[in-house]
Amino acid sequence: MSHFQFHLDAVDPATGARVGRWDTPHGTVETPAFMPVGTLATVKGLTPDQLQQTGAQMVLANTYHLALRPGAEVVAEMGGLHEFMQWKGPILTDSGGFQVFSLAPMRKLYEDKVVFRSHIDGSLLELSPAQCMRIQEQLGADCIMCLDECPPHDAPIEKIREAVDRTTVWASRCRDSHQRADQALFGIVQGATDQKMRERSAAGLRPLDFPGYAVGGLSVGEEPTEMYRTLDFTVPLLPTDRPRYLMGVGRPVDLLEGVLRGIDLFDCVMPTRNGRNATAFTSEGLLKLKNLKHRTDPTPVDPECECPVCRQFSRAYIRHLFMSKEMLGPILLSWHNLAFYQRLMRDLRSAIREGRSAEFRTDQLARWNRSV
């Protein structure tokens, strides 16, 4: 695809961690990269300018939620997501496949489609592979995802096999329905934590020759060690010359472990969700700002951070905002947390280029395990 080029600049031979550049119609993404989640065409609490200041290169929006409101037709009429939300960089939209898992009580699954009952007004939303492509084409993201089925991690093996096979069939139909050359369509490898099912899924998707591949169905209740074990045998199944995207992950330690296993792209709501709940990520570990010990603490959230929040405001002030239920508190901590994630990815890219990703992991885990 002429609109998209993926270049690997360095691979750490000791770990398999990769540094690359992914050229898209709305700019180049340096990988590994973390994408903030903007479910409804907004990253909660931040303006696009503030989001850019965190170092974010690419953001994610949600097909299911945007199809319900304001509607894909409205977004298209307003010039597509980039114009609508005033984010000038690359955008990825997921397919609604995760909602097959997360909204299971509100949907019916068929061989050729999934039908949701809206959590807003009870209306029906039908997603077939063709309809999923049509919606994402209207939204106009740079990168779009095939419709897939994400099974629970503890589902019976028969159900996991059904989900894998349905995901493969739907991926083929998505590829055949997709029309826009300025969008990169990714296939999604499913299979829970079962190695044979992951191999079955990858074997079905690789011949479809997608410009990128995602690992779905992780961080859905399994233990972190199981997630890492699954990545150990799944990532080698993916093409080395395409971006690899681990969907919905996660904690800083999960990003670190994923990068060292060869993952290039991540997304998660955790930085902003924790920020709205008075919890900050710092170079020394988690910081809970509501704790009484921060009532008169003049230090910044993270003394090693150079984001605008840490340059200007004290822990005592941010705690006061939360205790007073002032909306600025969640905004400031979300801003800081996103900046923390972007700094982590920049530091990882530097470590990989210098062939010291394993040492970086050891040092960083030791620091995060300290109590703040």
Rank of each mutant, 00 (worst) to 15 (best):
R367V: 02
L256Q: 07
L287C: 11
Q342V: 08
L92S: 05
L127C: 06
D209R: 11
R276Q: 10
R166M: 03
C146T: 09
T230K: 00
R315N: 01
E359F: 00
I91K: 03
P303S: 05
V189H: 14
Y110Q: 10
Y317V: 00
A67I: 05
D23G: 09
P105N: 11
W335A: 03
A76S: 04
R295S: 13
A14H: 14
N62Q: 04
G191R: 03
G16N: 00
S283P: 06
M58A: 08
A214R: 08
H153Q: 11
L8Q: 15
R343V: 01
C307P: 13
L109N: 10
Y245P: 11
V253W: 01
L292D: 04
N369T: 12
L260Y: 07
L286Y: 04
N62I: 05
L348H: 07
G187Q: 06
Y341M: 13
F34S: 13
R273T: 09
A155I: 00
M327W: 10
Q136S: 11
S334W: 14
P25Q: 04
T279Y: 06
S371I: 11
V75H: 03
V19R: 01
L103W: 14
Q190C: 11
G262E: 00
M1V: 02
M197H: 10
T24V: 00
R200H: 14
K196I: 13
G285Y: 09
S172F: 02
G89W: 09
L40T: 06
D232K: 12
A278R: 00
P25A: 02
Q131S: 12
G212D: 12
Y245H: 08
P330V: 04
L332Q: 14
R206M: 10
Y228Q: 06
Q131R: 15
P32R: 01
F313Y: 05
M197V: 02
V114L: 00
R319D: 02
M345H: 07
A130N: 12
G80C: 05
A141C: 09
F322H: 01
A214K: 09
T39Q: 09
D254C: 05
L365M: 07
V11R: 10
L103G: 07
K196V: 15
D267S: 12
I188E: 02
F34L: 10
R200V: 03
D121A: 13
S201Y: 03
L365S: 08
D182W: 11
P236D: 10
M133R: 09
A351S: 11
A339L: 02
R273I: 09
C268V: 09
G329F: 10
L185T: 06
L81R: 04
V75T: 02
R244N: 01
T63N: 10
T299L: 09
S128R: 14
S128A: 08
T234Q: 07
A72K: 03
A181F: 02
T28N: 04
P252T: 05
D363A: 09
E137V: 06
S172N: 09
Q57K: 04
L292H: 05
H178D: 11
C268F: 05
